[in-house]
Simulated assay, not measured.
Amino acid sequence: MTRLQDSGHFAIIEPPAEAAQDVVYRWLKQHVLTLPRHEATFVTEAEVCRATGTSRTPVREALLRLESDGLLRIVPKKGAYVAAITEADVESVMQARGLVEDWCVRRAALLGESLAAELDRLVSRQAELEQSPVTFIECDREFHRTIVRSAGNPILADFYETLRDRQLRMGLHAIAASEERIRIVLAEHAAIVEAIRSGDPERAAGSIAVHLTNTLLAMRMPIAAGWVRSAADSRGSRF
C-alpha cells in the first residue's frame, strides 16, 4: 500500500490486482510442467477458462507466452499441443548444457568469493523449497543461470535460456524419480559453490560435470510410484 501526500492530505492508493493473464500464466505453466513426461496432450482455451474462471482473452495471452517459452505449440482450431519428451530430447539438451556450463563455470571460477556468496544464498533458498517441486526447479534454474551469466557472454546466456525452458518439465520429473534426488542436488550445488570459491577452474568444471551426469541419470530413471499423487497435489485441480 502506498501513501501519497497532496496539499496536506494523505491519499491511500491500493496496489493494482494481479493481471488475469499473469494468474492464468502461472496456473497453466505449473499444469504443463507437471504433466506426465512421456505423454502428449492438447489443452484448449475452453478447458483453461473453466479451470481458472477467466475469459478467453487472458487465456489466449497466457498460451502465447507459454508458446514463447517453448513449453507448448498452438495449433489453429485445435488448441495448444504439449509434446511428449523423448529420451533423445533429454540426451540432446543435457549434452548442450554440458558444453555451455563447462565453458561458463571455468570463467565464473575466476570471480571466486563474489560469485560464491550469491550462489550460497540461492542454495539456502532452494533448501527451503523441498515441498514445492515447481519452485525448487525454478530456483535450480536461477542457480545455474547465475553461473552462466557471470561468464559474460550474452549470446551463450540467451542460448542457455532456451535449453532450460526445454528442461523444465524434464527436471521436475527428475527430482520425483528418487526420494534422495533433492538432497543430492543440494549437496552437488554446494560442491559447485565451494569449487568456485576456491578459484580453481578445473575443480569448478569437474563439479559441474558430476552434477550434470547425475542429473541425466536421474532423468533416465522411472518415475517414483508416488509421483502422480504428489504432482497433482503440487498443482491443484486438473481439467
Results as ranks from 00 to 15, higher is better:
168 L>K: 01
175 I>K: 01
151 A>N: 04
147 I>V: 13
174 A>R: 11
161 E>R: 14
173 H>M: 06
183 R>Q: 15
162 T>Y: 03
171 G>Y: 02
153 N>Q: 15
179 E>V: 12
162 T>P: 02
164 R>P: 09
172 L>G: 06
147 I>S: 03
183 R>P: 01
151 A>V: 11
165 D>E: 03
169 R>Q: 02
166 R>H: 03
164 R>A: 10
173 H>E: 02
161 E>D: 03
162 T>Q: 06
180 E>R: 11
166 R>D: 01
153 N>A: 13
176 A>C: 12
172 L>Q: 05
182 I>R: 13
170 M>V: 15
172 L>I: 12
151 A>R: 11
164 R>V: 14
173 H>I: 14
152 G>L: 10
160 Y>L: 14
169 R>E: 02
161 E>P: 03
169 R>L: 05
166 R>W: 03
172 L>S: 05
167 Q>P: 04
160 Y>N: 04
166 R>G: 09
160 Y>R: 04
148 V>W: 01
159 F>H: 05
160 Y>F: 01
159 F>M: 13
159 F>D: 04
174 A>F: 06
162 T>R: 07
175 I>V: 09
155 I>S: 04
155 I>L: 11
160 Y>S: 04
163 L>I: 01
172 L>H: 03
165 D>P: 01
157 A>L: 07
176 A>L: 11
162 T>W: 00
162 T>E: 02
170 M>E: 00
148 V>Q: 01
149 R>C: 11
148 V>F: 00
176 A>V: 14
156 L>W: 04
156 L>H: 08
182 I>W: 01
174 A>C: 13
152 G>N: 07
178 S>P: 00
150 S>Y: 00
162 T>K: 10
148 V>N: 02
153 N>K: 06
170 M>A: 04
181 R>I: 12
173 H>F: 08
183 R>I: 11
180 E>Q: 11
163 L>V: 02
182 I>E: 01
176 A>G: 15
154 P>F: 08
157 A>S: 06
183 R>W: 10
173 H>W: 00
175 I>N: 02
170 M>K: 06
165 D>M: 13
177 A>E: 03
160 Y>K: 10
166 R>K: 10
183 R>G: 13
182 I>H: 04
166 R>V: 15
184 I>A: 12
168 L>G: 04
178 S>Y: 06
182 I>G: 13
177 A>I: 08
165 D>R: 15
159 F>Q: 09
153 N>H: 12
150 S>L: 07
181 R>Y: 09
155 I>C: 07
182 I>F: 07
181 R>F: 07
180 E>P: 09
178 S>T: 11
167 Q>H: 06
165 D>Q: 11
168 L>P: 07
163 L>G: 08
153 N>V: 10
147 I>G: 08
172 L>P: 05
184 I>H: 06
163 L>S: 03
170 M>G: 00
176 A>T: 14
148 V>A: 02
149 R>K: 12
173 H>Q: 09
150 S>I: 15
156 L>R: 15
160 Y>P: 07
